[in-house]
Write a protein that binds this DNA or RNA. Structure first.
Length: 238
DNA sequence: TCGTGATCATAC
DNA sequence: GTATGATCACGA
């Protein structure tokens, strides 16, 4: 059977329902990134060193994510955020997962419920992809999708980390935050290079310039999320 | 070996 | 610069 018989959807079109999105996602499982790239007329890079977002953008294309640099979920009309997650030889996340840019000013009164982190993570479609570096991107296989929403325990973990980090930012201690802060989620540089600067709050409450930061999910947390899906296939059904 | 800090491509 | 998509790469 040809790929297009299994995937009779005009790529790049927006899925109209969660069911359609999931049908598309399931149809990608088992194919390599090279096959999918070929069907789409894309060229697979030799490695991801200068194409770090390539796999994510290829999956976006097939699932019909509204491309763009807008600060909202990939499927805003469905309330779903898309994340490709590279797995190592043990089936564990090979990388942390970028969530969103961290606001470093005008945080007074912002609550977890209003935060961009929570908005992005409220419902995530995980697409596991072989992330072994010794294998060429074109040979890496796409896995079965997992549609996840944080359970109470997960939400509390994320909230606690967000509140701790946000508190430090508000108190002018952003430059003392390292990736070691946080249990499930950490704050790390998110910039073109280490010379990039953005506004933040200083120790005396004054405006300072610092490296732009982003929120990232730690590997262990993401691993637990994916593990929960494997142990109970119905865990994330609604 | 692996996590932290650094970095790459692209759109606007 | 900010925001999207992320992974790289070196020092501990």
């Amino acid at each position: 059977m040809s790929f297009f018989e299994q995937y009779p959807v005009p790529a790049k079109s927006q899925p109209e329902s969660e069911q359609e999105l999931m049908r598309r996602a399931h149809a990608l499982a088992g194919f390599t990134l090279g096959q999918l790239a070929g069907f789409a007329g894309w060229q697979a890079p030799k490695n991801l060193r200068k194409a770090k977002g390539w796999a994510g953008q290829l999956i976006e294309y097939y699932l019909g994510a509204s491309a763009g640099s807008k600060q909202e979920q990939d499927f805003a009309h469905l309330g779903i955020e898309l994340k490709t997650i590279p797995l190592n030889e043990h089936g564990q996340p090979a990388e942390t997962t970028y969530v969103c840019i961290a606001p470093l000013t005008q945080l007074n009164g912002v609550t977890w419920e209003q935060s961009n982190v929570r908005n992005k993570l409220q419902r995530v479609l995980w697409i596991p992809v072989d992330g072994r570096r010794e294998i060429a991107p074109a040979e890496r296989t796409v896995g079965h999708p997992v549609l996840w929403s944080p359970n109470q325990v997960e939400d509390r973990l994320l909230r606690a980390d967000w509140e701790e980090l946000t508190e430090m930012i508000i108190l002018g201690a952003v430059d003392q935050i390292t990736a070691r802060h946080g249990v499930a989620m950490q704050l790390r540089p998110k910039a073109a290079n280490s010379h990039a600067l953005t506004n933040a709050i200083g120790p005396e409450g004054e405006l300072i310039q610092t490296l732009p930061r982003g929120y990232y999910l730690k590997k262990e947390f993401t691993h637990a999320v994916l593990q929960r899906a494997l142990e109970d296939p119905n865990a994330f059904n609604r």
